[in-house]
Design a protein around this nucleic acid. Structure first.
Lengths: 341, 341
DNA sequence: AGCGCTTTCGAAAGCGCTTTCATAAATTGT
DNA sequence: ACAATTTATGAAAGCGCTTTCGAAAGCGCT
């Protein structure tokens, strides 16, 4: 095994020697976990600076039984959605003086199977688990070990009571339907469903059905299709609809990522948005305001979700009760619905 | 200090006891660093599985003097550009059986100053340093410590010889100018410069000038403006140009992120793209193919850049010579240049 | 001067692993 | 059958820190 050019690192001993104290004292000065005489402390501080001493995280972790890092587990890192989530998480974690370990369980380069997650009880003090990134079984194991866990976009399995965080999917889709019906007078509103594996898909569809009913509108099953929260799948679905002669006033795309596919399909079939068909998305991701027409959508407070997740983890570490939360959404009116926004 | 509900972790001792061997043997079985009798190994393996033993990263790191993790240091995590970079890096790191620590040096929530990076020699075996995320001084310190380092989008300071990775900026912009001049016959091509702090800005401008000269075109300083690789800044710049009555056949936006701003400015001044003005970007990020019109651009192999960075780090760890690299780009013709793509 | 406190600090144990060194057992050659 | 190897394994040191425990010193009183 090749080893790094061995420039011996400065350790706590070096500092202790230079400052003329014991390592216990140095440790106390560094961590601030116990009182130290002011003069002594200053002397130690000077030694630390002179030697440019940085405590070893490994040694600290070993002694402390805590790694001072949180983990983020996602299934596919390169989703536009994660851009702001990551940002929120990173900021909060940094603010808390911790590190952030990231791990995707996506396909590995060579194999077709999912790789075992690298994160676990041994290298984090808590993990943010995004939907679909971890099987219930492993989730249970970690939870029973007492490792702080927060779920994103999914609820806790069984009776595990792991706190979870989500946006208010139902309120979001209701806002959309209300707007389309009330403001624009649309009646036939198509719905693109997300993947089964995402709970959000379920909540959004439920909200859709309830909202239609609330307006006394019929639920036409042929207006509900599979979009998979995906641009290409949605493109295909909408194309099929149009080619089979189906008609609708508006389409809810499932999420913003799917919107470009929907817009393209409509455009290629000679339909104008919003004149002929209104289009509304969900999330207000990076794309939404940059599409043509600008996408009317529901803003998920993604960055805040990330911060909140970190807060939950910290709360769990302190042993506090940490209830699940549903974050409020905001309806963003732009042009794709027919408003002049 | 509150401590996690203390479910004592299973350690190497537990495994050793159950398998009836010494911890040395268990260690050897786990790491495979020394031969172990086959029967013994099986027995140990069984014990490991039965106890669900996972070695402590901290203890390992302490003993090994290596953390088994790489770090990624960026200045602002929520840039669309990082989406695929992160993906490439994460995949490669995972494939190498390592962890990935992410750290942004962006503004912290409360303070206006940049936060001290969390990453360093003590918690990583190597760091990927994105442009602008670390002052030369700290870079030097880490490099002299012998920590493997790879620079992204910037070259090594002074005589430090830290390997760096970049895309072929000059070739990219030359391909653009060639296309605009040769295929579309444009002569007055405006150029939006990136931030001073980014080397890419420099290379792209240099390439622009050289390419114009190669075509025997004059360099009109008024056609060069500051876009800052930013949507809003670019919007403002282009608006000013148009309001001051400047005219041009085409605009190079600096990078794709700036493109929406440019398109909006043109659109709001009644100019059609590509009929009145051709627009070309750089990077082929997530947005490029989804704008209207679809953006002609240069594809930076961002994901590959990430993978390559990890490969460089691994190479450095093995003490191999690890030269810098410039990755080739690909010119992507879409519609914003006037092609029918 | 002697007593009980409080404050400050050092010695040493322990965190869970890897690895060196030594020993014991098995194998080979003569 | 015996020395010379080779192979398999354990004991123990060490990685750099935190923290417990106890001693020493300083303090205010009687």
């Amino acid at each position: 095994m090749t080893r790094r050019k061995s420039v011996r690192r400065t350790t706590i001993d070096d500092v202790a020697k230079l400052a003329g104290v014991s390592i216990s004292t140095v440790s106390r000065v560094v961590s601030g976990n116990a009182p130290v005489n002011e003069d002594t402390a200053t002397r130690v501080q000077r030694a630390i600076e002179e030697l440019n001493y940085k405590p070893s995280t490994a040694a600290r972790a070993l002694s402390d039984r805590r790694t001072n890092a949180f983990g983020l587990l996602v299934s596919e890192i390169a989703a536009p959605y994660y851009l702001y989530l990551l940002r929120g998480i990173e900021m909060a974690v940094r603010e808390a003086g911790l590190g952030l370990l990231i791990n995707s369980v996506g396909m590995s380069e060579n194999q077709q199977e999912k790789t075992r997650p690298f994160l676990g009880e041994h290298n984090t003090d808590g993990i943010i688990v995004s939907s679909g990134s971890l099987p219930d079984e492993e989730l249970q194991r970690l939870h029973e070990l007492g490792l702080p866990l927060v779920l994103l976009h999914r609820t806790s399995p069984n009776g595990l009571s792991i706190p979870s965080l989500n946006v208010d999917n139902q309120a979001g889709i209701k806002a959309i339907i209300d707007h389309l019906v009330t403001v624009h007078g649309h009646q036939r509103i198509a719905f693109l469903r997300g993947p089964e594996s995402e709970e959000d898909s379920y909540w959004r569809e439920l909200g859709y059905r309830e909202a239609l009913q609330a307006h006394g509108l019929p639920i036409d099953p042929s207006l509900i299709g599979y979009g998979g929260f995906d641009e290409h799948i949605s493109y295909t679905m909408v194309s099929e609809w149009l080619e089979s002669g189906m008609s609708f006033d508006a389409i809810f795309t499932g999420n913003d990522e799917a919107a470009p596919g929907v817009l393209n399909a409509l455009y290629e079939h000679g339909l104008r948005v919003p004149e002929d068909v209104a289009v509304v998305g969900f999330d207000d991701d990076h794309l939404a305001s940059r599409l043509t027409p600008k996408l009317t959508t529901v803003r998920s407070p993604i960055e805040q979700l990330g911060k909140e997740a970190v807060a939950q983890l910290l709360s769990l570490m302190e042993g506090k009760p940490t209830p699940s939360k549903i974050l409020p959404i905001e309806f963003i009116v732009r042009q794709s619905c027919g408003c002049s926004g």
